[in-house]
Design a protein around this nucleic acid. Structure first.
Lengths: 109, 109
DNA sequence: TGAACATATGAACAACCATTCATATATTAA
DNA sequence: TTAATATATGAATGGTTGTTCATATGTTCA
């Protein structure tokens, strides 16, 4: 007969966040899980930048960058402000920096 | 004529990590970007667990869990030890906890 | 108003990935 | 050695997603 772990499961279940939160967490990290978006966040880590500067920096089309900025904005990781024709993007809070920094440490330890 | 941002790009380029590191960072966060893997990490956050306990906890097949554990192990996020027929998994370092905690804070702030 | 610039967006396509299914490996006990 | 349990793995598939292309929206200046 297979071995039993009811007691263990009871304990772990109590400590697990709701499915909704776990789903949201996965969705959040999914946004970090793309090299282009990581590059954008690292660039904005330094300074606010307009879309065409980012696309020039990464050597990618303006459209591709715009699509990714939309994804980042929906996840509340970046925010923007308009100045004439230009729209400047910047990181929206310190968590972005912390998360990236922790990932970086994990890699380079 | 399009507007110029050579000075800005020069500065940002200097501060950007290498493409290899940026790629590795994206790959690392990709591993966090899946609800099943997030659930596994949260479970192991509490206690070390065997494969069948995890699959029972999440209501998923043993095969699915094994595949995901392999992904987590390759990213050095979990480690395992054998005890007879059973293999116990646990989180491999504190960065996992920090990264999840930061993500959690970003969501619930 | 019209032209030029800056950005956003919808559709389509190719590449990637999580799960399933079937099966293989490993360990223990009889 | 055989049966039972625990885990791993390869192939296949359905769903997801990043980029491209074409085009739309928004802003400024002449």
């Amino acid at each position: 007969m297979p071995h039993n772990h009811d007691k263990l499961l009871d304990h772990v279940k109590k400590e697990m966040p709701t499915d909704e939160i776990l789903q949201d967490l996965g969705d959040l990290f999914k946004v970090f899980g793309d090299t282009t978006r990581i590059k954008i966040m690292f660039a904005l880590y330094e300074e606010e930048m307009c879309v065409c500067a980012i696309s020039e920096l990464l050597g990618m089309t303006q459209s591709a960058i715009s699509h990714q900025l939309k994804t980042l904005k929906q996840a509340d990781l970046v925010a923007s402000r308009r100045e004439g024709k230009t729209i400047y993007y910047h990181l929206s809070d310190e968590h972005v920096k912390s998360i990236i920094a922790q990932g970086y440490e994990h890699l380079t330890e």
